[in-house]
Simulated scan of single mutants.
Amino acid sequence: MSNDTMVTLQGWLGGDPTGRDAGGVPVTHFRVGCTPRRFHRQREEWVDGETQWYTVNAWRTLAEHCLRSLRRGDPVVVHGRLTHRTYVNKANTEVLALEVEAITVGHDLTRGCSAFSRSPLRDRADGSATPEATAA
C-alpha cells in the first residue's frame, strides 16, 4: 500500500486542456478552480470562499480522453494523487504549486448532463478490450 496523498476535487475547468508528448507518452494538463461555499449564519446567506487552483495532469489513455472530452468552463470531478513542486516565478519569488496526477476524471453530473462514448479498444483499466468491443 502506498503512502500517496489521494484527493478528490470538484470544480470548474479554467481553460481548455492542453496535450503534449512526454517521451512517447501522451500527457494532458488543465487547471481546475475549486471555490468553497459556506453558509454565513449571521448574514443568513451563502458566501463564496477564495478560489483554489490546481493543475491536473492526466497520462496515457486518460490524457487522450480528457483532451477530447473537456472544455473550458466544464464542471468536473477529479480523483488522484496530490503532489507539490516549488519553482521561482518571473518576479523571482519562490512559489509552491499543488498538482494532481489524475487517476479518474469525469463531468460533474450535479451541474448538468453529459453523453458518454465508449472507446472500443481500451475499455478496461489494463487496456484490454471488453467482450462487447471484441464482438463488434
Rank of each mutant, 00 (worst) to 15 (best):
M1E: 15
M6W: 15
L9A: 04
Q10I: 11
G11Y: 00
L13K: 13
G14F: 09
P17M: 10
T18A: 09
R20A: 15
D21M: 03
A22F: 05
V25C: 09
H29N: 15
F30R: 11
R31H: 09
G33A: 14
T35E: 06
T35M: 03
R37M: 03
F39N: 15
F39H: 10
H40G: 02
R41D: 02
R43I: 02
E44P: 01
T51W: 08
Y54K: 02
Y54M: 08
T55D: 12
T55N: 13
A58P: 00
A58Y: 01
A58R: 10
T61L: 00
T61C: 06
H65V: 04
C66Q: 06
R72Q: 12
D74T: 03
P75G: 09
V76E: 08
H79D: 11
H79Y: 07
L82Q: 10
L82W: 12
L82R: 06
T83F: 00
T83Y: 00
R85L: 05
A91H: 04
A91D: 01
A91G: 00
A91C: 00
A97F: 12
V100W: 04
E101V: 05
A102D: 02
H107V: 11
L109E: 03
L109Y: 01
L109R: 11
L109F: 07
T110M: 10
T110K: 06
S114M: 06
A115R: 07
S117K: 12
S117A: 15
L121F: 14
R122T: 10
D123V: 14
R124V: 03
T130E: 11
P131I: 15
P131M: 10
A136P: 00
A136V: 07
A136R: 03
